[in-house]
C-alpha cells in the first residue's frame, strides 16, 4: 500500500538530491537540471497532497508551476548561451570575472 507518506518522503528525497546537485556539480547545464528536479519534486508532493485531500487545487497549482518553470528555463538557457558566447565555458567555477 503506497500512502501519502511514501510520496512525501520520495518528493523530499528528490528535492534534496536537486539541492545537493546544485551545490556540488559544476556544469551549468546540470545545475539547470537540478533546479528542474527540485521543482518537479514539489509538483509530486502537490499532486500527492491534492489526492490525499480529495480536491483539485493542488493539481491546478502544478499546472501553474509548469508554466512558470518553462518560462524560467527558456530565459535561463538564453542567458547561458549569451554567457557562453563570451566565455566558451560551462564550468561555473571557472566563470569568475566578478569577484571581491
Amino acid at each position: 500500500m503506497v500512502t501519502l507518506t511514501h510520496y512525501i518522503v520520495l518528493s523530499t528525497i528528490l528535492f534534496g538530491l536537486g539541492a545537493i546537485g546544485f551545490a556540488v556539480r559544476r556544469n551549468a547545464i546540470i545545475l539547470f537540471m537540478s533546479i528542474e528536479l527540485m521543482l518537479n519534486a514539489v509538483n509530486l508532493s502537490l499532486v500527492a497532497f491534492s489526492r490525499y485531500r480529495a480536491e483539485l487545487n493542488g493539481q491546478v497549482m502544478v499546472l501553474f508551476i509548469y508554466a512558470v518553470a518553462a518560462a524560467e528555463v527558456a530565459v535561463g538557457l538564453a542567458l547561458l548561451i549569451s554567457l557562453f558566447r563570451h566565455v566558451r565555458e560551462v564550468d561555473v567555477t571557472r566563470i569568475n570575472i566578478l569577484k571581491g
Binding site: I35, M38, L39, L46, A48, F49, M61, L83, V92, L98
Partner: peptide
Amino acid sequence: EGAFKYFLLGSFGSAFFLFGLALLYG
C-alpha cells in the same frame, strides 16, 4: 555573468519558496 548567477541562485531560492508552499498546502 552576473545575470546568469542571478538566474541560477534566484531560481534555486524560488524552489525553496515553492517547497514551503507545497508543504503548507499539505
